[in-house]
Simulated assay, not measured.
Amino acid sequence: MRNLLAQVGASLGFLVFLMLITRQIIFPEPPKLPLSQTIEAQSNIIAMTFTNDGLQLISASGNTPVKLWNWTTKRNTTIFDDRSSNALSISVSRDGAYVATGHGNFQESKNLQETDIKIWDRKTGQLLKTLKGHTAPVRAVAFSPDGSRIVSGGQDKLIKVWDVNTGKLLQNIPAHTDHITSISFSNNGKFFASASDDKTIKLWDSNSLKLLNILEGHRGQVLSVAFSSNDRVLVSGSGEDRFDQNIQENSVKVWDLKTGTVQHTLTGNAGWVWSVGVSHNNKYVASAGYDGTVRVWNLISGELVGIGTEHSKQVYTVKFSPDDQLLVSGSDDGRLRLWKIQP
């Protein structure tokens, strides 16, 4: 009897083992991104950008000071101490001289709105100019590659073009039918893209400011756009339909800019894709997810490279390090996490 029970037990054990192996083959566990380092930022990270020389990372953290991080030591110095404003977006001029921050919050209440753009001296931390003109939170700011202009987008559905030296408004463009969420310049400076809650991405000529193309295909609000370094591809991240929460797209799309068509639709995020980034070598695309994850895909094949799950709250922003060895993510949990990227 004991021998029979032992045989049955062994058979059941083998069956369970076989089922586990079969499940792993049919439903394999997604690869994990190796975590290299965690930096305590002590405040939520809403947006961030590298200086063009790659020596410093600048992060915006709501109504706490904007911080500059020495990328060699990974230590920070507070440079823009303006606790009266809530920074939603950030950009640094290509020569590293100036930093622009767009201000506001995500609430719809008009009593809580901030609508300014601020230009700072990066080295001294001095506030140089405050640009007023938007009537709703400024979700996007971007320096033109030559540093002469700032293009901003707000929840007032407008794109505004500003002269950096004088602070004067040069152009006011009624660009979208819903909130503008992201603006990104091509690396050659010839055009820029704007993303909106109206589910579209629009491409504009940087000089004439004429509309060149409208990229349509997202079923949810488009929250972020980024160009590849060779300007052949645009990557976008989406969320839900703002007026029908049953439509949850939460995807990343890779667009061929020559044809205006979608090369890949990358899925898996269980929440909005707040930010996307493309590695400088054009091999990888990354996403920051409201589900608390960081994801990396192969830009060419669309294959998932890895998922980072160590953040405890939503991830708002991702940036590849200048040498593409690391991916940096900023989260509402008050931490910067550095993930190893395979060459």
Rank of each mutant, 00 (worst) to 15 (best):
I21E: 12
W339F: 05
H134Y: 08
D163S: 12
V285F: 02
S331W: 01
W162M: 02
L4K: 14
L112F: 14
A288N: 08
S312C: 07
V273N: 00
A6Q: 07
A226L: 05
S59E: 09
S85P: 01
A193T: 09
L18T: 11
H218S: 07
I150N: 09
I58S: 05
L112D: 10
S251K: 00
L257K: 00
N282G: 05
A6W: 04
L212I: 10
G154L: 02
N44P: 14
S275P: 12
S148N: 15
T49N: 10
K199P: 04
Q245C: 02
L18R: 08
F27Q: 08
D198I: 10
F227W: 13
S11R: 12
G9A: 11
I214K: 13
S84M: 13
D241P: 00
S89V: 04
S301A: 06
R122S: 14
L4D: 13
S91Q: 05
I307A: 07
P145D: 13
I26C: 04
L5K: 05
L215E: 15
T177S: 15
T38H: 06
W255L: 08
S224M: 03
S186F: 10
I58M: 10
G271Q: 01
G268E: 06
F17L: 01
E240I: 08
M19N: 02
H103A: 09
Q245R: 13
Q248C: 04
V278H: 10
V315A: 04
L57F: 10
D163N: 13
N207F: 09
T115Y: 07
V151L: 02
S194N: 06
Q24P: 01
T309P: 01
H103G: 06
T177H: 12
L35C: 14
V285Y: 02
I58K: 00
I300F: 05
K67W: 02
L266Q: 05
T38A: 10
G289P: 04
N86E: 11
L4Q: 14
I300H: 04
W297T: 07
S236F: 03
L12Q: 03
S186G: 11
R23V: 14
